[in-house]
């Protein structure tokens, strides 16, 4: 559960969250390089990447390092701002931090000496955990930022996800903006009249949420009217042609090959040994 400090209570989070979601959905006018990468290819590559990253042993910091290249590469190729992704990671990092921080407490066997500095296994596994967190979480954010939500949904449908699930993913994404705007307005109206209090009393929260819920129900009914008026009978049709070409297959295979090589061989170790062999 996310324990929020009181000063970030209320709307700042909602506003910024929705803002960042809108930003992510940049107009298609500005073409990006990997726009042409099939979303299924991106999806599969991302999953393989995450599976490989998480499969590293808990102390294998070194072996993990070459995998930094994937998110860096994709981000730069697509002009994604590492800063924006970093800020999001920072926001959700407490969850991983809170559990990871126990490692140094429970595992204090010294496994490494850097000069006079003794490093315990716990600190190393903690570092590995945080590196894994940054890599996996940024891979997910990159996936969403590159493909765009609707294209990803089409990819999911093509990958045999149930249709109902995909349709209401689409609807939810569409109506998050409106509902969040509505919620924003209600909370703002509350906060301008609650002068000294920080946060919101439970009682107020209950009725505010109830009101928001009733509005949501009304909206759902109106949307349903608009849908049946245009012949809705359970299917939400989307025209999107996905053409996976040789480039997409190559994209998946080359990256996967790299991930597997990086998983099987400790590349930094090899590199270091090679360099020291040459120059020693």
């Amino acid at each position: 559960m996310k324990g929020m400090p009181p000063e970030t209570c209320g709307m700042s989070r909602l506003d910024s969250a929705v803002g960042s979601m809108k930003d992510q959905d940049r107009p298609a006018g500005r073409e990006r390089t990997v726009r042409c990468i099939d979303p299924r290819a991106m999806l599969i590559t991302t999953f393989i990447y995450i599976a490989v990253v998480t499969s590293f042993e808990k102390f294998d910091l070194l072996g993990l390092l070459p995998l930094v290249i994937y998110p860096l590469f994709i981000m730069e190729l697509n002009n994604l701002s590492p800063g924006a992704i970093g800020r999001k990671l920072l926001y959700v990092s407490p969850c991983a931090l809170m559990i990871g921080i126990f490692n140094p407490l429970f595992d204090n066997r010294v496994v490494l000496h850097l000069g006079s500095l003794a490093v315990s296994g716990g600190w190393i596994s903690f570092t590995v955990l945080m590196v894994k967190f940054v890599l996996t979480a940024s891979a997910a954010l990159i996936l969403a930022a590159i493909c765009g939500f609707d294209t990803l949904c089409v990819a999911l449908e093509k990958l045999k996800m149930p249709k109902v699930f995909v349709s209401q993913l689409l609807f939810m994404h569409r109506y998050i903006f409106l509902t969040a705007d509505e919620a924003s307005r209600m909370v703002r109206a509350h906060s301008v009249r609650s002068f000294r209090r920080k946060g919101m009393k439970i009682k107020v929260f209950g009725s505010l949420c109830g009101q928001l819920l009733l509005r949501t129900l009304d909206r759902a009914l109106r949307i349903r009217h608009a849908m049946v008026s245009r012949g809705f009978r359970g299917d939400v049709p989307l025209i999107r042609e996905l053409k996976a070409g040789k480039g997409d297959t190559a994209f998946v295979f080359l990256w996967t090959a790299f991930f597997i090589i990086a998983r099987c061989f400790n590349l930094p170790q090899l590199l270091g040994a090679f360099v020291m062999d040459k120059f020693a």
């Binding site: 609707d150 245009r230 809705f232 025209i239």
Partner: peptide, 16 residues
Amino acid sequence: FMPRVFDDVAFGPLNL
């Protein structure tokens, strides 16, 4: 209610 204006305009004809 659809992701893009195009999809919304196409919704009726596709359902037909």
